[in-house]
């Protein structure tokens, strides 16, 4: 297999890393909706925490994207 083709396949495989963060971000927002529905008065405090957790999980997806881009163009 030539290197160019292997690079493209590798970049495609690297995007599999989006699966986990996708589930994680879904869980975070689901938990946020649940808890705000139960206790709307606490929405402000919970939303801040949700954004922080979102950024922590989203960083993992970004790692996969960075790897894919580095394989393609690096």
């Amino acid at each position: 297999m030539d290197v160019e083709a292997a690079k493209l396949i590798g970049a495609g495989l690297a995007t599999l890393g989006f699966v986990g963060p996708g589930i994680g971000i879904g869980l975070i927002w689901a938990a946020l909706i649940n808890s705000v529905g139960r206790n709307p008065a606490a929405a402000g405090a919970i939303t801040t925490t949700a954004w922080v957790s979102f950024a922590l999980v989203e960083a993992l997806a970004i790692f996969a994207l960075a790897i894919a881009l580095l394989i393609l163009f690096g």
């Binding site: 970004i62 994207l65 960075a66 881009l69």
Partner: peptide, 14 residues
Amino acid sequence: SIRLFANMMAGHTL
């Protein structure tokens, strides 16, 4: 450090 650097690099490349 990797969280900040990878976010910025991947975002700008995208």
